[in-house]
Amino acid sequence: MTTADIHALVGAYALDAVDDLERVSFERHIADCETCRTEVDELRGTASRLADSTWSVPPPRLRAEVLAAVGRTRQLPPVESARPRADARAAAPRWRRYTAAAAAAGILAAGAGAAVWAVQEQRVREKSAVVAEARTREARTEAILAAADLVVRTAPMIGGGRVTVASSEQQGASVVSLRADEAPSADRAFQMWKIRGTGPAVDAGVLPAGQASAVRVVDGVPGNDVFAVSVEPSGGSRVPTASQIVAQVPLT
């Protein structure tokens, strides 16, 4: 990657829109580039101000407080009427209906608030799980890329693109960056393979159908002879289709 390419990553890095290999390269760069460090800080500050109006999760006590308020609130009594007693008797059922309707409306409002809170809480839990998984994956990626025995190999893809394999025997894994110029059709997918000698190819993961690029941590790549990529039916195949192998990265 050239110096010009590195400087061009400032905005993408500030918004966390770089892949793992680009992140490592840029962080090594800004360790010595004060101009880029300053620009990253300014862009992140701007991004954080733009997010000031985002929603917050209701506190866990919201549902209990709403239901308690419903229980404490007395309904208004019927208004005294100057009409004859018969009319008052006829009006009483209507007031009871209005009172019941008001109580039901309060309960429904409380239930709606609780439902919204429950949905938002579920979203927060799901987001937290995704963030935790991403942090674990990022930590593993950084450990591999920072390994003293890191070896980086690359090969072009048929049809345009490149596959890069950064391997560490100490970590027993590799960071694989796959970037194709064209994505497979919607019912086809890139599938990765580990190949040792004349033995059978071992599945190393399938990208989502129609996806053109990805960065993956793949265990067990060191010690193999070739890392290959083929185009397979959506969901992957048990063995690579020989005529559809689009990249082979020699590992030895």
Rank of each mutant, 00 (worst) to 15 (best):
A69D: 06
D203K: 10
D87R: 09
A69L: 10
D219T: 10
E34D: 13
I107M: 06
A4Y: 06
P78G: 04
Q171G: 08
A103S: 07
A214I: 04
A112Q: 09
W117T: 12
V175L: 12
P184M: 05
A103Y: 03
Q122C: 01
M192W: 03
P233E: 12
R125H: 10
A209R: 05
A183R: 11
A86H: 06
A166R: 01
R162G: 03
T252L: 11
S185K: 12
L67M: 14
R188Y: 10
E22S: 14
W95D: 00
D87Y: 11
G160F: 07
H29T: 14
L145A: 12
T136C: 04
A101L: 15
T99I: 03
P58L: 07
A68N: 08
A201L: 03
A129M: 14
A47T: 06
I6D: 02
K127Q: 13
S213Y: 05
V131L: 14
Q248F: 02
H29F: 15
S234R: 11
P156G: 12
A112K: 00
T99N: 01
L251E: 01
M192E: 04
S230G: 14
A114N: 00
A180G: 07
A129L: 13
R153P: 03
A209I: 03
A100V: 01
E27T: 11
A186E: 14
G111N: 10
Y13E: 15
S53F: 02
A90T: 10
A92L: 15
V202A: 13
L76D: 04
E27V: 04
A139K: 08
P93H: 05
N224T: 04
P58G: 06
A105V: 04
T141P: 00
R140D: 07
V119G: 04
A201E: 01
D87V: 14
S174H: 03
Q170T: 15
E27M: 09
D187E: 14
V165H: 00
V130W: 05
G106A: 15
V176W: 01
A103E: 08
R135A: 11
M157F: 06
E169R: 14
A101C: 11
V70E: 10
V18M: 07
T136L: 14
G11P: 10
V176A: 01
C33V: 02
I245K: 04
R83P: 00
G205L: 09
R135M: 07
V218W: 02
S230P: 02
Q191R: 03
A146H: 11
L108Y: 02
V249K: 01
A12Q: 14
V249Y: 00
M157P: 02
G11M: 14
E126S: 11
A17E: 15
F227W: 01
S53Q: 09
